[in-house]
């Protein structure tokens, strides 16, 4: 019993450290790629590590009340919880995570928990930019959640399971990635990913020059540190989930990093060549083609 608890705790710590470092590196690479596209040299790939250390070693950080103090913590909790129920490698090897039947549905809830907690915290700062950012964020969430849920429901109907591990096992048994056996769900999910990552053209929440970075405009020092690290953990968790669901999981860390990096480059490269949408344009975009593909995926799952 005790041994098992220790084993799982160890797994949680290892996956957290892995997700943190890989996620932060990806964010740094994102800045590098953006810079190269803009014909600049750009910061070194480890720039975001330095930023995080600097934010963590700020001497003061003021807050405007209990909810504001807890907001970044909610974000962190949501990121770590989603990381812990997403299997990192095939067959639960090396990183034991807490999967159970129905975790796909649980994941749908827990992934929206962090942003909601953050919204409460941003409301307490009394900063008008934060309030506008929060309303925009919720509107965007209403946009991309629809194709995303449709894609997941299609998978659940087609394979009659709500467990991520079962879906991974199906891919391992048939030898076909779900990306090919349910292509419409894959397309809808990828399009929903643009909204989840909030890179341009969907960076309407934290628009730096328009909203002064929105919900985080009053967060400095350690609060921003928590938000940045939770963002990188969450990015890795989401990419791993996509790899698990559609790209057949990964047998070792190298394959995992390769697959997640390819997935990550989709929103990044789409983002660097696009200006920012307005809120209603973004929502309309998500309720257009992505939802259509989601509907096709559900039809395909129920009738074929």
């Amino acid at each position: 019993m005790l041994k098992e608890i220790l084993y799982y705790t160890w797994g949680a710590v290892v996956s957290f450290v892995l997700a943190f470092s890989v996620g932060i590196t990806y964010m740094g690479l994102n800045r590098k790629v953006t810079a190269r596209v803009q014909n600049r040299i750009g910061p070194p790939w480890y720039q975001n590590f330095l930023d995080v250390i600097k934010l963590g070693s700020k001497k003061t950080a003021i807050h405007h009340g209990v909810m504001h103090h807890l907001g970044p913590a909610f974000l962190m909790v949501s990121s770590v919880m989603s990381l812990l129920i997403i299997p990192i490698l095939n067959n639960g090897r090396f990183y034991p995570n807490l999967n159970f039947h129905g975790d796909l549905i649980f994941l749908l809830y827990i992934m929206t928990f962090g942003p909601l907690g953050m919204a409460l915290g941003a409301g307490q700062t009394g900063n008008p930019n934060s309030a506008i950012g929060v309303t925009r964020g919720l509107a965007q969430m209403a946009g991309f959640e629809i194709p995303w849920v449709m894609a997941l429901v299609a998978l659940m109907i087609q394979y009659k399971t709500t467990s991520i591990v079962d879906l991974m096992n199906i891919q391992a048994e048939t030898g076909r990635w779900l990306m090919f056996s349910s292509p419409f769900a894959f397309i809808a999910a990828i399009m929903a990913m643009f909204g989840m990552f909030r890179y341009s053209p969907f960076d309407i929440v934290g628009a730096p020059s328009e909203l002064a970075s929105g919900p985080m405009s009053e967060n400095g020092g350690k609060y921003l540190f928590t938000m940045m690290s939770s963002g990188s953990v969450f990015a890795f968790a989401k990419l791993t989930l996509y790899t698990d669901l559609f790209l057949g999981g990964a047998d070792n860390l190298l394959v995992l990093v390769l697959k997640t990096f390819v997935l990550y480059m989709i929103p990044v490269l789409y983002g660097v060549v696009n200006p920012r949408y307005r809120t209603e344009q973004a929502v309309r975009w998500f309720w257009g083609w992505p939802s259509f593909f989601g509907l096709l995926a559900i039809l395909q799952a129920s009738f074929f």
């Binding site: 810079a35 600049r40 910061p43 003021i62 930019n129 002064a212 970075s213 967060n219 400095g220 020092g221």
Partner: peptide, 22 residues
């Protein structure tokens, strides 16, 4: 800040609000 002199390669980057700035 932009491509000609590119201050971001030195880690210099714009901050949106006073709370985040150094």
């Amino acid at each position: 800040m932009t491509s000609r002199y590119d201050a971001e390669r030195l880690g210099v980057r714009g901050a949106a609000t006073p709370r985040q700035a150094d």
